[in-house]
Design a protein around this nucleic acid. Structure first.
Lengths: 351, 351
DNA sequence: CTCTGATATGTTAGCGATAACATATTGCGG
DNA sequence: CCGCAATATGTTATCGCTAACATATCAGAG
């Protein structure tokens, strides 16, 4: 207390961050001018801008965007909910989104639902509290409350990776059931007749459930009498679980000549387990996956799978939401859009 | 214009989201009471709380946290920068962070640097503009400006996955060089003498560079005359690149009996390529990775690697930052802490 | 010279919540 | 039945920034 008393505002508690007012004062301009200098090409004299930049440097000033958003109603971010951080498919989708948003001033705020709709509901709540400018969710299956939150959010909502029968608004995705159906057809075309399906034990992973449904429908449509579904592990099932599942599968139905796994990861695990046990793939049993993960094209033998255009899903979702945000901003009506993305069976060495 | 004119505040432009004032009005209380009802155990009459909850339901009100943070100085999130979304090591670390932060009211805001310090600098800027309560970065290598930003940020800073010689503040990590050194020693102990190193062509990935440095030091320390470094591809190198690299390696140094790959992913690619070419692993050449990715324990044969405790790194970083935030809040001095995490060589079938 | 329309900057009034400080209201011991 | 502490609620003043609307300056047309 014996030292010189200083201005309360500037030296209170270990130097609170400088504000725009501090910068303005130092540069000898008004805060509004600072604000303008910090953003787009508002008309600012080069000299003034330089003075301001200097003051900012000197003070180590960093704009407080949350204060700015309160005033401007623009938070500059988009909420994106994906099931898991550790799935290259969704990683690709968020990469696609990021790519689409470059230069738009929008950032991604990612949230992970762990394949749980309850967790999704919670996340939607906490995202919405931060006022994103749009929200992208994975799949079309939500808790009633989550759905209500999305519907009333007042921002563009995009459901991805599925074609929900009752979309909330925009959709960018494909039919997992149809893609799975196509894969069964492909195996059938290659001569396989006793085709099994390996997946998780619950329907929490709705895309996994859809793929199983597509499998069942295809089996029936092809007149293959028996459907053989081996459920093992909580979705999303891991490589290890894929390995265990194929062992059980061949114990239960030794006559199987092909197995479709719910994802490439489980297909990979199944393949490795077969190698460990000396079961020739595809001679003893053919294996196919889903999703075209990088690993499927690297391992030996390479895994037959269904390529889904993950990056494109994200990219088109990103472009769509930019249009939607822009449209809403200028008060134009933005019609709900459904974009159906492509998929294709990629035949490789395991079938 | 012929319809009944309504209150400007409430029916302006397609129903702007209701505010706390709307809720307060409907519930017949003040905004402060609503604010209290929405948070921790402030003293609120049960009856009042119910009235408020009802009003919130009716209006579909969602708290605007950005407005709240402006006033309370608490944004409720922590910035986390990791090199890549598509690397299970970093995924595990952010999982560990998330786990540590459960119940603290803090959320993670993830950013991906793509192994680029320029991108990191940019991200640090945009993160800081949103006023996180702490920031966790990967590695100890930053641009000068990024470093300055972090130092002046006024929030707890934690560097992870490395032991920087001049830490900014807190550190949770291990020495990649040391771990790599240990792996070379292990291979040497198994009888391998002509050990090579496979990695990327640049030092952008500093952890990769550290691992190579550890390899070189070990080679010298063990008196193995020649160090054989095969650089191929821009880090982080993929499985495919690992596969190409091992082919080149054995063209250039056919006498090699072991290869250490900069990461498990490249080790996996190398292993698969060997299988494809009929080179027996580990008889023709032993292969080791780094990071103990799940895949290394699933493939066949299983890959020798170095287990680093990714989840623990994240978890301890999370706990550390909670302490630091709490300490700063109550004005206590928070000493810089360095937490060194463990690693271990995991010997499996490829060596 | 005056007027017009760029260009550059300032002023004022919030954005929607919360901190901090009142002010009722209640319960209960004395 | 008074007074004091605990409980429940209200008031006021920001938080740091930007929208919207002035205002000032200046070049060149008329």
């Amino acid at each position: 207390m014996s030292l010189t008393a200083q201005s309360k505002k500037t030296t209170d508690a270990r130097a609170a961050s400088p504000t725009m007012a501090d910068v303005a004062k130092r540069a000898g301009v008004s805060t509004m001018t600072v604000s303008r200098a910090l953003r787009d090409g508002a008309s600012i004299a080069a000299e003034t801008r330089d003075k301001i930049k200097l003051a900012i440097e000197d003070l180590g000033y960093v704009l407080d965007q949350s204060a700015g958003s309160l005033s401007s109603k623009r938070t500059g971010f988009v909420a994106v909910l994906i099931p898991s951080i550790n799935n290259s498919n969704f990683a690709d989708t968020s990469r696609g989104l990021t790519d689409a948003l470059v230069g738009s001033g929008l950032q991604l705020l990612l949230g992970y639902t762990d394949y749980s709709t309850e967790k999704e509901e919670e996340l939607i709540g906490s995202m919405l509290r931060r006022r994103p400018e749009a929200i992208v969710v994975t799949g079309g299956s939500h808790t009633p409350k989550a759905r209500r939150l999305l519907e009333k959010s007042g921002i563009p909502v995009i459901e991805t990776w599925d074609l929900p029968s009752q979309p909330i608004r925009h959709v960018v995705g494909f039919s997992n059931a149809e893609a799975s159906f196509a894969l069964v057809h492909h195996l059938h075309g290659q001569g396989y007749r006793r085709i099994a399906f390996i997946g998780g034990t619950s329907n929490q992973d709705t895309r996994g459930a859809d793929r199983r449904a597509g499998y069942e429908i295809a089996i029936a449509a092809l007149g293959l009498k028996e459907s053989r579904v081996m459920s093992f592990g909580t979705p999303p099932i891991s490589g290890k679980q894929g390995g265990e599942a194929i062992v059980r599968l061949l114990e239960q139905w030794p006559e199987c000549d092909a197995a479709i796994c719910v994802s490439d990861l489980s297909a990979f695990g199944a393949l490795m387990e077969c190698q460990r046990r000396g079961w020739a793939v595809p001679q003893r049993i053919a294996i196919a996956g889903f999703g075209d993960f990088e690993i499927s094209n690297q391992c030996h033998p390479r895994i037959t799978t269904v390529g889904v255009h993950c990056h494109e899903i994200g990219n088109r979702a990103g472009k769509l939401l930019l249009r939607a945000i822009e449209g809403e901003r200028r008060g134009e009506p933005v019609p709900a859009e459904t974009i159906v993305t492509d998929y294709e069976v990629i035949s490789r060495e395991t079938t």
